[in-house]
Amino acid sequence: MLQGWHGWVGTFTGVALITVAVLPLAALAVWALARRRSATGTTSAWRMSLAEVGIVYGTVPWVWMIMLPGAQAGAVPGRVSLVPLKDLLTVVAGEPLTVTVQVVGNLLVFAALGVFAPLRFAALASVPRILALAAGCSVLVETAQYVLRLDRVSSVDDVLLNTAGAGLAALASRRWWRTTAGSAWCG
């Protein structure tokens, strides 16, 4: 099915399969971190551990996928699109399945950050702070795509969608993190 290392670490399918395969390890990491913290008397040990592992497990595969090089990586100069909504309107005019994959994929890149960062860090327990963090992370990723000449378009629309996804995820999880925003940070 997937031949060699490139098939596993250099394709969307490989990254998705690896992500599913390491889910038990992620669950084990949550358990081990929570157990260790509980032994030292840390309050909210399970919540903190789940949030930390959730941020990493839910973000790394998406960033990995968007950093995969295109067919002419290194051979073509980086491309930049700084006109807001230009690329998005081009994608929307395309095939419906492609539109769905592109838009939903971009919304999910930093969604885990939007859900879990406010649970772990009380200082991030506000939607504007999550939006700022996600926008900064997205700009870093888009800049890396350009600098590394990955044969990908570094687009302001990707930044907007990545940021919107984190913001929507933060709003969806606000019920759980608002109750801890006023409490002292446990770190």
Rank of each mutant, 00 (worst) to 15 (best):
T180H: 05
L140C: 13
V139N: 01
Y146P: 00
S173W: 15
L171T: 02
G167Y: 06
V141L: 08
A144Q: 03
W176P: 00
R178N: 11
R175F: 13
G165S: 15
T163L: 12
L171K: 09
A164Y: 06
Y146F: 15
A166P: 05
S154L: 06
A184V: 13
A164E: 03
G182M: 08
N162L: 04
T179P: 00
Q145N: 02
D151Q: 13
L150R: 06
S183K: 13
T163N: 13
N162M: 08
S155H: 08
V156P: 10
L171H: 04
D158A: 11
A184T: 13
V141C: 05
T179A: 15
N162E: 05
T143M: 05
V147L: 15
N162I: 00
G165N: 10
Q145P: 10
D158E: 14
T180I: 03
D158W: 10
R175N: 01
D157N: 01
W176D: 01
W177N: 04
D151A: 12
D151G: 10
R175Y: 13
S173F: 09
T163W: 09
V156N: 03
R178W: 10
W185M: 14
W176I: 06
A181I: 01
T143P: 00
S183P: 00
S155V: 09
T143I: 10
V153Q: 10
L148R: 05
L148W: 14
R174K: 14
L160T: 01
D158N: 14
L150I: 00
W185K: 09
A169M: 14
S173K: 01
G165V: 00
T163R: 09
A169T: 07
S183E: 11
L140K: 01
R175K: 07
R152H: 12
N162R: 10
V147G: 02
A166G: 14
T180N: 03
V153H: 06
A181N: 02
L150S: 08
V141N: 09
A181F: 03
S183Y: 03
E142G: 07
L161C: 05
A170P: 03
V153F: 07
T179D: 09
L148A: 14
V159C: 06
T143K: 04
E142W: 04
T163G: 05
V159I: 15
D157T: 00
L148Y: 13
R152K: 10
E142R: 02
R149S: 14
